[in-house]
């Protein structure tokens, strides 16, 4: 049995949620409507800012010419590869640093250095080394997400409760047992939340890479549109990018919640 007050409470939560989503959708609608209106009235320059109806035309055109999905999939493919590699390599490097504190001490200043270096600066160099292809794009993205992953996961590792380590040692646990039975499970949350960071970083890296060298992808659409002064294409690219990054972020958050709920 649910009391009336509880019912009222649950209802008020639902109502609140509904109102918030409605307002959010309304804001999006107003944004586009205003954009279209101001463009039609020639108050904003459609050559620079384009307008929603033109963007829609561009999207339809791209879809009909069968290019749109190739671009989306190219970018998604690169993001997913960079993301997966970033997580695995990040985890492995973090484990090595944790197991061998002396290595961690030695590489610490170098990690800080690489972390603070704007990775785009390495772009031209990467292209020369890896060639003007997808490999370069993935290396670019990996450079950006890997360091962050390593640092986040490693920090999770070294912040483990000392008494738990003492407990493991009192049972004469080996280093490997401490790692597998204690360090990794208790950094679970940190590892999961590094996924969120990693997906944003991968996206940044991939788009940056596509700006520098690419034959397809959303970054390519944007840079190509700029070069031929087709700003509707640029706006289309940006819009699609916003949607993709939103969906990817929500997806990772969803996975995160699913995994963390276990505890």
């Amino acid at each position: 049995m649910i009391s009336n007050e509880q019912k009222k409470y649950l209802k008020s939560i639902k109502v609140k949620k509904f109102i918030i989503i409605s307002i959010q959708l309304f804001i999006v609608f107003i944004f586009f409507a205003l954009w279209e209106y101001l463009a039609n009235k020639n108050i904003i320059n459609t050559f620079v800012f384009s307008k929603p109806s033109k963007i829609l035309d561009t999207i339809i055109n791209l879809a009909i010419n069968n290019n749109l999905f190739t671009h989306i999939f190219t970018t998604l493919y690169e993001v997913i590869i960079a993301f997966t590699l970033g997580i695995f390599l990040g985890l492995i490097v973090a484990i090595i640093l944790y197991q061998f504190p002396i290595i961690a001490k030695i590489v610490d200043p170098f990690l800080t250095m690489i972390n603070s270096l704007p990775k785009v600066a390495l772009g031209p160099l990467i292209i020369i080394i890896a060639g003007a292809n997808t490999k370069s794009i993935i290396i670019m993205a990996l450079l950006i997400n890997l360091i962050v992953s390593i640092i986040t996961i490693y920090n999770g590792f070294i912040n483990i409760d000392e008494t738990k380590i003492k407990l493991m040692k009192s049972f004469k646990a080996t280093k490997k047992q401490i790692l597998i039975k204690l360090v990794i499970p208790s950094s679970y949350k940190t590892i999961i939340s590094s996924l969120k960071l990693n997906i944003s970083m991968s996206l940044i890296g991939v788009i940056m890479g596509e700006f520098l060298v690419s034959k397809a992808g959303i970054g390519y659409l944007i840079i190509y549109g700029t070069q031929v002064f087709n700003l509707s294409l640029v706006m289309t690219g940006i819009l699609i990018l916003v949607i993709i990054s939103f969906i990817l972020y929500k997806l990772v958050t969803f996975i995160e919640n699913k995994l963390i709920k276990k505890f």
């Binding site: 008494t163 407990l167 505890f263």
Partner: peptide, 8 residues
């Protein structure tokens, strides 16, 4: 001193 039980 601390029970140090593993929450997971």
């Amino acid at each position: 001193q601390d029970d140090a039980l593993f929450p997971w």
